[in-house]
């Protein structure tokens, strides 16, 4: 069942076309990975879908409803939740209050036991009553994932969730994400750490210079000539 549809999105910043005519669809209960070299437009695509940026043209549909012109918090309340590449915890709130925050504006009751379980799985339980400002970078990254999950999103979009994490921390994050998926969740993940990502995702999109250059199974990514060219740089090969 289709849950998200993106049609011909275009976003320009000055002379640069950051997202160039990108279209794709996302199925319910799917894990989609988005990869590509730096500056390919992945984060901009996320910002367009989550509403932080407005597209110059194109449409975005969530469950068949056109959400192109809705506000970011509106999309979040409809279940389209994102995390940020550069972490943005609420620094003066404690770790637990950070989990409470998204539920203050939702009809979901804040279940402390559930929050504690989630924090345990992510190795954050000892820091529960500490303001988020005092966390390490990796802990903040995990807190963002937890803050996304606690809102019970229909789609969770993660921007480099493994960035700067240790191998053990990646394991913790992967396992809570898998759990969410097994309970019917849908994930879109931008990630540079391809080895860890490929094990998790079912389908991959590859972007380069704003364009979508590959769509298919993770196993086929490395076989695609377009992808190899994008990562190596076209001009130098010939």
């Amino acid at each position: 069942m289709e849950i998200l549809r993106v049609e011909q999105l275009i976003k320009r910043f000055g002379g640069i076309v950051a997202v160039d005519n990108v279209s794709f669809t996302l199925q319910k209960n799917e894990i989609l990975g988005i990869i590509g070299p730096n500056g390919a437009g992945k984060t901009t695509l996320f910002s367009l879908i989550s509403g932080t940026e407005k597209p110059d043209s194109g449409k975005i549909y969530l469950n068949g409803e056109d959400i192109t012109n809705t506000k970011p918090y509106h999309r979040a309340l409809k279940g389209l939740v994102r995390t940020f590449q550069i972490v943005r915890p609420f620094k003066s709130l404690t770790v637990e209050q950070n989990l409470h925050a998204p539920l203050t504006v939702r009809k979901i009751h804040f279940n402390q036991e559930e929050a504690i379980q989630l924090l345990k799985k992510l190795g954050l339980i000892q820091k529960r009553n500490i303001p988020a400002a005092y966390l390490t970078h990796g802990e903040m990254k995990k807190l963002e994932v937890a803050r996304g999950l606690i809102a019970k999103p229909r789609i969770l979009m993660l921007d480099e969730p493994f960035g700067g994490l240790t191998v053990a921390e990646i394991g913790e994050v992967t396992s809570v994400l898998r759990e969410y998926y097994e309970e019917g969740g849908t994930l879109v993940i931008i990630e540079h750490r391809l080895r860890e990502l490929m094990k998790l995702i079912q389908r991959a999109l590859v972007m380069d210079q704003g364009k979508l250059i590959f769509e298919g199974a993770p196993a086929d990514v490395a076989k695609s000539e377009a992808v190899i060219k994008a990562y190596l740089g076209t001009d130098t090969v010939i």
Binding site: P72, Y73, A76, F84, F90, L93, Q97, T104, R106
Partner: peptide, 24 residues
Amino acid sequence: SRLGIIFTCIKDDEIAAKAAGIDV
């Protein structure tokens, strides 16, 4: 109350608050 948490979120980071679903 929950308003207190919301106000603190807005003070800390408006963009993150919006992403969390808060009508800033």
